[in-house]
Design a protein around this nucleic acid. Sequence first.
DNA 1: TTGAGATTGTTCGGATACGAATAATATAAA
DNA 2: TTTATATTATTCGTATCCGAACAATCTCAA
Lengths: 164, 164
Amino acid sequence: MTGSHTLAETEARVSNRLSHMTLDFEAMAVTSNLFRAASAVRNHVERTVLADSGLSWTAFVVMWVTWIWEPAETREIAEEASISKATLTGVLTTLEKLGYAKRSRSSKDGRLVIVTLQPAGHKLMETLFPEFNRHEVEVVAAVPKSQRTVLADALRAITAKIEG
Amino acid sequence: MTGSHTLAETEARVSNRLSHMTLDFEAMAVTSNLFRAASAVRNHVERTVLADSGLSWTAFVVMWVTWIWEPAETREIAEEASISKATLTGVLTTLEKLGYAKRSRSSKDGRLVIVTLQPAGHKLMETLFPEFNRHEVEVVAAVPKSQRTVLADALRAITAKIEG
DNA sequence: TTGAGATTGTTCGGATACGAATAATATAAA
DNA sequence: TTTATATTATTCGTATCCGAACAATCTCAA
């Protein structure tokens, strides 16, 4: 949320609006930066790495989870991708239309749907994922190596705190 | 992306898929945790703090930016909220429908649209934002105080690296 | 003054995104 | 066996979300 304005300027404005209240600007900064970073990474990757493949960020994540765990159950994919089952239904329809993935009923449990990748899906991921990882390396290069573990652990702690 | 599976398990699976390639698992972990954390915070806040108000996360951010900077130009709001102008058009329509915000033409430049909050919008933010900040404090409490500055700086560095 | 080029917000088309309701299937107890 | 309960993926309605195309407006050089 601190786009063209400086942090101090934003804090001064907020203080004016809520001068009678006690606010935690450190917590504000963490949340704000968390979303700006996630948004920036996502948009950048979608416009560079993923642009040619026609995959959205979410579609790529679903492809990745399926690729690693196939045959994968949809409930498992939704959990790993941090999206709802309803959203996954739509994304899988897109991926089937593109010829990258395929749905099938579980023979063990008729309620479950099993997802596997098509040959075109495997081929795509074998070139797309290394490229994706190279961009991840570039992004993380912005953080001093000595602080990367702290960063990853802090983010994991936040997720655990909420979901736990 | 590391939901029910352990990090080591995921890495082993990935290694199997790409045993012939060199991958940076540290970078993968940072990106993955970044998105899991952002998604968890967003969903949690939408289901608790924002649920009663009928605001989505994005609608709240737009309200917040407008509240701090009003009268605010739409291009400025879109930039601060990290959304496209097209998305902002839809969100503003929603906020006007709810009676929280109002659009008006700039008298200086006929291309610009100026946004201000309605009285109901001010009233909402005065109670909603402190509550929002309290949840931010709870979330950040998952990270040791000594590491919070490192976390915020690292996230800011990532955003700057991409957008710079 | 005028007209080409730039900037802005909106519209359009299509793809997420989610909660609630639903249909199909499985599981448990009676 | 039957029936109530639970679990699953899908459908539905609605709200983002974005890129591209568009119309309105501004700028500035000719």
